[in-house]
Design a protein around this nucleic acid. Structure first.
Length: 307
DNA sequence: AAGACGAAAGTGGTTGA
DNA sequence: TCAACAACTTTCGTCTT
């Protein structure tokens, strides 16, 4: 659907469409081809329910997509967008006058919020799609009055965090916190609240998603990276990953993988980039060695490396 | 001296009555 | 709403390289 037929990376036509997540994934190389499949089943239904019959096809959902597409464009065009949006709303508040005040308030809020969102997003070097998704989530949150009683910034941060998770480019709460100067727990709270209220389903984040970023911070070879992922897969099977912090597991897997490939990093170094403590790495590391029988493999490699 | 290891106590969040 | 609980952190002493 949506006209994507081939993988941009390897040209394969072997694609997997995940409607729920709005993604197309190449089965051969794993590239996620983002398309504008803005299909949030649950939210749309919500709007259909409250928006009346006429708006069913062309109402609120269109606004999102227009808004969404416009996000990626230049500032000059942004004004048009807001006009469009208010134009769209005009129809609505002809019927209900009081809506006027709310919608202008929403627009004002949105302008500020999107500026903040952009700032944080560029600070974290997030992909455009994530930024747009976050904007969409934020827009919905505002329209549903979820910002009331919370600071705008914290909702922005929460929306960004959610968008990151949905796109499997996870940033830790710590990173979001640093970028937005909102407390970690506050972001977590609004994140949970917003996703619950909007009915956004988020897959539990996968430790493997962190590997690439951590590995490059540590300047580890690609080999080591894939070894770490391999270890992670085994760990999943042994149910070592459930309930534990994904970053800790990712860090431990990387640590082991680095040892095996003679690219030794100290626990401290790994712990720092992963944002966990050495103790956590040690615990995970111990579990990994025990449960996956990596001990002999590790010793063998190390003996080899000594010579 | 630096890193690895592990015990013990403390913190923040989840869960279930 | 509160207490029990698991995961994680902090701190610190000891062992290893």
């Amino acid at each position: 659907m949506y006209y994507v037929k081939k993988c941009a990376e390897c040209g394969s036509a072997n694609l997997f469409v995940n409607r729920e997540k709005g993604e197309i994934i190449c089965k051969d190389c794993g590239l996620v081809i983002e398309d504008r499949m803005v299909e949030f089943g649950q939210e749309w239904r919500e709007f259909e329910d409250s928006g009346g019959e006429k708006r069913r096809r062309t109402g609120a959902p269109m606004t999102y997509t227009q808004f969404d597409q416009g996000l990626g464009t230049e500032v000059g065009q942004k004004a048009d967008l807001f006009q469009l949006q208010s134009k769209d709303r005009n129809k609505f508040f002809r019927l209900r006058k009081w809506q006027y005040r709310i919608s202008t308030a929403i627009e004002r809020n949105l302008k500020l919020a999107l500026a903040e969102l952009k700032r944080v997003s560029s600070y974290l070097k997030l992909p455009k799609m994530v930024e747009e998704e976050a904007a969409m989530i934020y827009t919905q949150a505002v329209q549903r009055g979820l910002v009331r009683g919370r600071s705008m910034e914290s909702v922005v941060a929460g929306a960004l965090y959610a968008a990151c998770r949905r796109h499997e480019v996870p940033r830790t709460l710590d990173e979001l916190s640093e970028a937005s100067s909102i407390e970690k727990k506050e972001i977590g709270r609004t994140y949970r609240f917003v996703t619950r209220e909007l009915g956004i389903t988020i897959l539990p984040s996968n430790p493997a998603d962190y590997i690439a970023r951590f590995a490059s911070s540590l300047k580890l070879a690609a080999e080591t990276q894939s070894k770490a992922v391999e270890i992670l897969e085994k760990a999943q099977k042994e149910e070592l990953t459930s309930g534990r912090g994904p970053t800790g597991i990712a860090a431990a897997a990387l640590y082991v993988a680095a040892l095996m490939h003679g690219e030794k990093r100290t626990q401290r170094e790994v712990a720092d980039v992963a944002g966990v403590t050495e103790v956590t790495i040690r615990n995970r590391y111990k579990e990994l060695l025990e449960k996956l029988n990596l001990e002999k493999e590790l010793k063998k490699k190390q003996k080899l490396l000594k010579r």
